[in-house]
Simulated scan of single mutants.
Amino acid sequence: MGHLDHAAFGWLTPVLSYVMACIGAALGLRCTVRALSATGRSRRNWLVTAASAIGTGIWTMHFVAMLGFAVTGTDIHYNVPLTLLSLLVAMLVVGAGVFAVGYGKDRTRALLLGGLTTGLGVASMHYLGMAALRLHGQIHYDPALVGLSVLIAVVAATAALWAGLNIKSPAAVAVAALVMGAAVSSMHYTGMIAVSVHVTPSGADLPGATAMQFIFPLAVGLGSYLFITSAFVALSPTAGERSAYRSAELTDLNAPPAASPRDASTPERMRTSGPL
């Protein structure tokens, strides 16, 4: 049985992965808040951004944490197509949950359905990512801990969607993002505690890419996307700000034209008198 190390680089990967989960959650919640105050294509675009932010944040959290995962007696590689599929699943299933909340008429039903869908999607992403591991040995799971990790994912997703529906202020969103980041990290490490590896020593080359060859550059790219999108959302005017701007424009258009300085300085007698 191989010894599993979940923090081969110390606290660096757990802390950094938690930060990425919080950033993705905060960005997703802010986009959801914007979506609920918008209509038409604008609502759809905000929901798409929310889904991509949450999905990207969760995926990046998982694989940044996996950078610190090591098993004594074997190297670890990753199957590239399966890893990319896990990212796609995260975005699509989170998107389904976010859209259910964004367009659902019955908020309670939409919240429960969206939370269940999103939570199962998060769990699917995690275990697809684990299925992408290639090492010398066999991976086994504790079913009870796997079930607990799925339950945590569903509860965390439902809580996040509830926050998106009910929390409006930036400070409250920040607190909710910290809680959601902790929940996602808890789900990940609960799933990892469920893992045991029976190592089979071998000198054969492992298929796939190493974490530094593939996971690290992809995580850096997705992390950059989160930071850039966060800046865009922060600088983008809210619906209230746009409404105030349009009202100000209409007020300016309807205001009577101001008298020119020349007209104001010309005596009334000279303006009204005819030619001499």
Results as ranks from 00 to 15, higher is better:
Met1Gly: 06
His3Thr: 15
His3Gln: 12
Leu4Met: 12
Leu4Gly: 00
Asp5Ala: 09
Ala7Arg: 14
Phe9Cys: 02
Phe9Ile: 04
Trp11Tyr: 10
Leu12Glu: 09
Thr13Leu: 06
Pro14Phe: 03
Ser17Glu: 05
Tyr18Met: 13
Tyr18Gly: 13
Ala21Leu: 07
Cys22Thr: 11
Gly24Ala: 08
Ala26Phe: 04
Gly28His: 05
Leu29Ala: 09
Cys31His: 07
Val33Gly: 01
Arg34Leu: 00
Ala35Asn: 03
Ala35Trp: 08
Ala35Asp: 05
Leu36Asp: 07
Ser37Tyr: 03
Ser42Val: 00
Arg44Ile: 11
Leu47Glu: 01
Val48Arg: 12
Thr49Pro: 02
Ala50Val: 05
Ala53Arg: 04
Ala53Cys: 09
Gly55Val: 03
Ile58Trp: 10
Trp59Asn: 13
Thr60Met: 11
Ala65His: 02
Met66Pro: 07
Gly68Glu: 09
Gly68Pro: 10
Val71Gly: 01
Asp75Ile: 02
Ile76Ala: 10
His77Cys: 14
His77Phe: 14
Tyr78Met: 09
Val80Gln: 15
Pro81Ser: 11
Leu84Lys: 02
Val93Thr: 13
Val94Ala: 08
Val101Tyr: 04
Val101Lys: 03
Gly102Pro: 02
Gly102Gln: 09
Tyr103Trp: 15
Gly104Leu: 06
Lys105Asp: 13
Thr108Asn: 08
Thr108Arg: 13
Leu113Glu: 03
Thr117Asn: 00
Thr117Phe: 08
Gly119His: 03
Gly119Ile: 03
Gly119Gln: 03
Leu120Arg: 06
Ser124Ile: 03
Ser124Pro: 01
Met130Glu: 05
Arg134Gly: 11
His136Ala: 05
Gln138Asp: 14
Gln138Glu: 15
Gln138Gly: 13
Tyr141Gln: 07
Pro143Trp: 02
Ala144Val: 07
Leu148Thr: 04
Ser149Met: 05
Ser149Thr: 04
Leu151Arg: 06
Ala153His: 10
Leu161Met: 09
Trp162Ser: 13
Ala163Gln: 12
Gly164Glu: 08
Leu165Pro: 06
Asn166Ser: 12
Ala171Met: 10
Ala176Asn: 08
Ala177His: 01
Ala183Asp: 05
Ala183Ser: 12
His188Asn: 04
Tyr189Leu: 08
Gly191Arg: 05
Gly191Gln: 05
Met192Ile: 00
Ile193Lys: 13
Ala194Met: 08
His198Tyr: 15
His198Phe: 13
Val199Tyr: 09
Val199Thr: 15
Pro201Ile: 11
Leu206Ala: 02
Leu206Met: 10
Pro207Ser: 12
Pro207Tyr: 15
Thr210Asp: 05
Thr210His: 04
Ala211Val: 07
Gln213Tyr: 01
Phe216Glu: 04
Phe216Tyr: 08
Pro217Trp: 07
Leu218Pro: 04
Ala219Phe: 08
Gly221His: 12
Leu222Thr: 06
Gly223Met: 03
Ala231Arg: 14
Val233Thr: 07
Val233Arg: 04
Ala234Gly: 02
Ser236Pro: 00
Pro237Gln: 07
Thr238Ala: 07
Ala239Glu: 10
Ala239Lys: 04
Gly240Val: 04
Arg246Cys: 04
Asp252Pro: 00
Asp252Trp: 06
Leu253His: 10
Asn254Ala: 12
Pro257Phe: 02
Ala259Val: 13
Ser260Trp: 11
Ser260His: 09
Ser260Glu: 10
Pro261Leu: 10
Arg262Thr: 13
Asp263Gly: 08
Ser265Phe: 11
Thr266Glu: 15
Arg269Leu: 07
Met270Gly: 02
Arg271Thr: 09
Gly274Pro: 02
Gly274Ile: 14
Gly274Gln: 08
